[in-house]
Amino acid sequence: MPAPDANAPAPAGTVLELTVSNHPGVMSQVCGLFARRAFNVEGVACLPLPDAAGEDGGGGLSRIWLLLREDQRLVQIVRQVEKLHDVRATRLLPGGHPVFSALAAHLA
């Protein structure tokens, strides 16, 4: 496997950062919503939050980063995401997020 290329261009787009409950159905809830509302997701990254271990030891919260194309429907899809009960917090990052630059390096 070749080493990631640190100089690969960062993918363009807005990043929607979500803090979600960490259980097996959450990715399905979030990604399914985008599919149902016919809104494209360009990239996905997800990790459990280390400081938020739940009572069952399985990790209480996770962070999901979604790379999205700017679109006039962005506000609408963010409002729909905010309605999901497993989504605890949302943050829009119009400048993107380094997690996707790091991921893109693996494609180069």
């Binding site: 399914g32 999901l84 009960h85």
Partner: peptide
């Protein structure tokens, strides 16, 4: 059932 219920419920639990 959980997977089938996601798109048609307000929320679902397993």
């Amino acid at each position: 059932t959980y997977g089938l219920a996601i798109p048609v419920t307000k929320h679902c639990f397993l």
